Simulated scan of single mutants.
Amino acid sequence: MSEPALHVAATSGDIASIKKRIAEGAKIDARDGSGATALLVATHANQVEVAKALIEAGADVNAKDNIEDSPYLYAGARGHLEILRMTLAHGADLKSINRYGGTALIPASERGHVETVRTLIEAGVDVDHVNKLGWTALLEAIMLGDGGERHQQIVALLVRAGANVNLADGNGVTPLQHARSGGYRKIEAILLAAGAH
Rank of each mutant, 00 (worst) to 15 (best):
V50A: 15
P4C: 07
A10I: 10
A194L: 11
K27N: 02
R21Y: 14
V114L: 12
K132T: 15
D169T: 06
I83H: 02
L157I: 10
G101K: 07
D128Y: 13
G76R: 05
V155G: 02
P107T: 08
G35A: 08
N98G: 12
A10V: 08
I67P: 01
K27M: 04
S109F: 06
S12E: 15
E68Q: 13
H129T: 11
V41Q: 09
G124S: 02
V127I: 12
H90W: 07
H90I: 00
D69P: 00
V8K: 13
S12W: 13
E68K: 15
G170T: 15
V61L: 10
S34M: 12
A156C: 09
A57I: 04
Y184V: 05
D69F: 10
R185W: 09
Y100L: 13
S109M: 03
I55H: 03
V165W: 09
K19A: 10
G13C: 02
G101F: 09
R160K: 15
R78K: 15
I121R: 08
A189D: 13
A168G: 09
S181P: 00
A59Q: 02
G124R: 02
Q177W: 01
A36G: 09
N98E: 00
A196K: 08
L39V: 10
R111A: 06
G145H: 01
A141Q: 03
E149I: 06
V173C: 00
V117F: 12
N66M: 07
K20Q: 14
L192E: 14
G112S: 13
V125I: 13
A75T: 00
A38Y: 06
W135N: 15
S2T: 04
L157A: 10
I142F: 05
T43A: 05
V41L: 01
I97T: 11
T174I: 08
P107D: 05
A51M: 12
P71T: 06
K132E: 14
A104I: 00
A51H: 08
T43L: 08
I18M: 08
I106G: 08
D29H: 06
D93A: 15
V50K: 03
G33S: 15
R31G: 00
D14M: 06
L120P: 00
L54G: 01
D32M: 08
Y74C: 03
D69E: 02
L120K: 00
A30W: 04
G162P: 10
R118Q: 14
N164H: 11
A168H: 12
P107Q: 03
A123C: 13
I121T: 11
R118D: 10
L105G: 13
K64F: 04
K186G: 00
L157G: 06
N171T: 00
Q153R: 10
S34D: 13
D60T: 02
L133R: 12
H113T: 00
